[in-house]
Nucleic acid binder design. Structure first.
Lengths: 230, 230
DNA sequence: TTAAATTTTGAATGAGTGGTTAAATAATAA
DNA sequence: TTATTATTTAACCACTCATTCAAAATTTAA
């Protein structure tokens, strides 16, 4: 399996860092190393690794700060925090700083490798992401974005979800109930007006002439239908 | 209601699995059970269930792996992931592994049943996508649409219902009473003129020359007959 | 924290559909 | 032929459903 995955190990403990880097290299990963927060930020920015293994306690800058900062700069790779059990970081906290997951020290190299395996699989999967084309538009649901002739149109979370549902069920009548069930879940009590509102806004983004929708059409008394292809 | 839907529940927690299986059986589904990923893959391959309820965390193989693998083997049924809230899988992520939807644990059996209901409805709908052809026209009753040489003609709910009844009983004389019973039900008090009116409107949409109907013809004193070239 | 963006909601508006009436037309019977 | 009955059609009204608007509530970002 050709992984071709770049991992940055940020850890001030020489021994641990060396051990981890060694093992990851033998597993076939491309490995970079840093020992402090400042350098880590620089390396992440320039090298754009796929995964960052990041110690929680670092000289220079704390792991949480590093994580926050690179996220702000648009880094989208996975960040895995390494924390000592004593520090007892709540999982939630780690996520708050933009980390993707965490491991508690001490951990065996086998555990680390196993975890990375599953993360990598996830990465690879995410790459062959879903794209829907219709008319002169492209919908990339993963990044909540729509492109009209290459021009970017941002979608809100709900717009994205609604559009995705339509695109997965094109040329069919979708009842309001089904749509609301899909978007808001089973035990929600959102007003039906809300749905209308979102349809309106979605039309403004996808239709050439929103007053005379050609793609997202209403089927009176039944629901909506998204027309794709002939 | 004979559902005749086969559901496989894959869950290692005995209690939860038993509970779910129990409830689903009483709901009239045919239920299979597995406790680990390996067995699940085998059962899915041999039994080809319509729906798989799949735990995200499983011994042997993870839910995502199971999903990916059976998809690769050509399984086309619905896969619904069950995930703990803490795992916090984005809906989009679940889809990437080939899942059709997901529920977060803990969930009530009622929620589960409600969800499956809508999924099943969808399944059944997809199966019986009825289409009727006559002359140069195609009637797609599910989407309330008629195509004349590929050109779309929208039908209202009643037009759709009336036309469908005729197309299901072609080349026969349909009495006004039967038609009204079919369209408006038993305890309706609609005027018989109303029916005429709808026939007129329908003719305007389907006949080449509505003044001289060739398809939907009157049988004076009795009712109507829809002519379809044998 | 405040500000901005997003989502939700109730009320008002508007459009489309379905139903009725009554007059016009067609078919049948006397 | 005329009288009678059945059907077609147009015009109209009422009602439901969809849309829009404005504003409140909520979430997210700064």
């Amino acid at each position: 399996m050709s992984k071709d995955i770049k991992i940055l190990v940020v850890e001030d403990d020489e021994n641990l860092r060396f051990l981890a880097a060694m093992r990851l290299k033998t597993e076939g990963y491309q490995v970079l190393e840093e020992a402090d927060g400042i350098s880590a930020i620089q390396t992440i920015t320039t090298e754009k690794p796929d995964i960052v293994l990041l110690d929680w306690m670092l000289p220079g800058k704390e792991g949480s700060e590093v994580c926050e900062e690179v996220r702000k700069n648009g880094f989208e790779g996975l960040v895995i925090m390494m924390t000592a059990k004593a520090q007892d970081v709540d999982k939630i906290d780690a996520y708050q700083f933009g980390a993707s997951d965490y491991v508690t020290k001490p951990f065996s190299m086998d555990v680390l490798v196993a975890m990375l395996e599953s993360k990598v699989k996830f990465l690879l999967n995410a790459e062959r992401s879903e794209i829907h084309r219709f008319g002169n538009m492209e919908h990339h649901p993963n990044i909540h974005t729509l492109f009209r002739d290459g021009k970017k149109i941002e979608l809100t979370i709900l717009e994205n979800r609604i559009l995705l549902y339509f695109l997965r069920n094109p040329n069919q009548v979708i009842s309001r109930e089904d749509l609301m069930l899909e978007v808001w879940g089973y035990n929600s009590d959102v007003n039906t007006r809300t749905l209308d509102m979102h349809i309106v806004r979605l039309r403004k983004k996808i239709e050439v002439n929103p007053d005379n929708p050609q793609l997202l059409q209403t089927v009176r008394g039944v629901g909506y239908r998204f027309n794709v292809g002939s």
